[in-house]
Simulated assay, not measured.
Amino acid sequence: MSKQVLGVLCSGRGTDLQSIIDAIGRGEVDATIALVLTDKPDAYALTRAEKAGIKALCIDRKQFDGRQPFEEALIKALDEAGVTLVVLAGFMRILTPYFVRHYAGRIMNIHPALLPSFTGAHAHRDVLAYGVKVSGCTVHFVDEGTDSGPIILQAAVPVLDDDTEETLGARVLEQEHIIYPKAIQLYCEGRLKVDGRHVRILPAQK
């Protein structure tokens, strides 16, 4: 099986990107990152990519007249780089069906809550407001809804009585950095089978 080629989309610090770069460096993820894309020119993810010798581009949404021209530019860059799996790592734009259909079954995202609960951009705030005792993170395939695609892996994190968004977010992020590379490697090994809403993890080949 040929090695998967990743295109990683980020909007901010790029800590999930760094966890993937590090996992590849340790030989835990059998893939290459061909391209890092951001939608913000000041995203630190660009610096992380540069330090790792990975091609990085900013495609600024503000420079486009509408969502489709913006997504067309994303697709052009990803396709030209030969990307086979799109990895959303803190990409703070909702992708339209136009983009999702182009990469159907080949887009992953990580969300900082246990889906299907607490979707959207303010998961930690919503978790604390609701008073749940357990939160966590979810890696899922991206479909045409918001945080609604089939779930690949999840990790649970206790919610403490004195938690703030920052303290809870820091503990969840530690788990993100563990399970996102694992999910990518399962994809690279061809071990993820999607059956409706269910993602079956197939046994490793001997």
Rank of each mutant, 00 (worst) to 15 (best):
E166P: 00
V8R: 00
A23E: 03
P69Y: 12
R61T: 09
V132M: 03
K182Q: 15
V5T: 14
A89H: 05
E80N: 13
H140P: 00
R197H: 13
V172R: 08
E28G: 07
A52C: 07
A104K: 14
K62M: 06
I152C: 04
V127R: 08
S148R: 09
V157L: 05
R48W: 07
P97M: 13
A155M: 09
A43I: 11
A43Q: 08
L186P: 01
E50N: 13
K3I: 12
A155G: 02
M108S: 04
S148T: 15
G131N: 11
P150T: 04
F91I: 01
I201V: 15
A156G: 06
D195M: 12
E28L: 13
A104H: 11
V194S: 04
T138C: 09
S2E: 15
I152S: 02
G131S: 10
L9H: 02
P181Q: 03
H140Q: 10
E165G: 04
E189A: 12
G14W: 03
Q68H: 12
D22C: 00
I59C: 04
V100K: 03
K76C: 12
D163F: 02
F118P: 08
E28R: 13
A156D: 08
E71D: 07
M1I: 10
V134W: 00
Q63M: 13
V86T: 13
R93G: 03
K55P: 00
A49M: 10
A123F: 02
A45Y: 05
P112V: 14
I152F: 01
R48I: 04
Q63A: 15
D60N: 15
A121P: 07
L35E: 09
G149P: 01
L192C: 10
K40N: 14
A56T: 11
L153F: 00
G12F: 00
L115A: 08
E176L: 12
L17M: 04
Q63R: 15
Y44P: 02
A52D: 11
P41H: 13
Q68S: 12
A89V: 06
R125E: 14
D126P: 07
G90K: 05
E50W: 00
G82A: 07
D60F: 08
E176S: 11
E166C: 00
I201L: 03
V139G: 08
I179R: 11
L35G: 06
L35I: 14
V83P: 00
D79Y: 05
Q154W: 04
Y130D: 07
T38D: 08
L186Y: 15
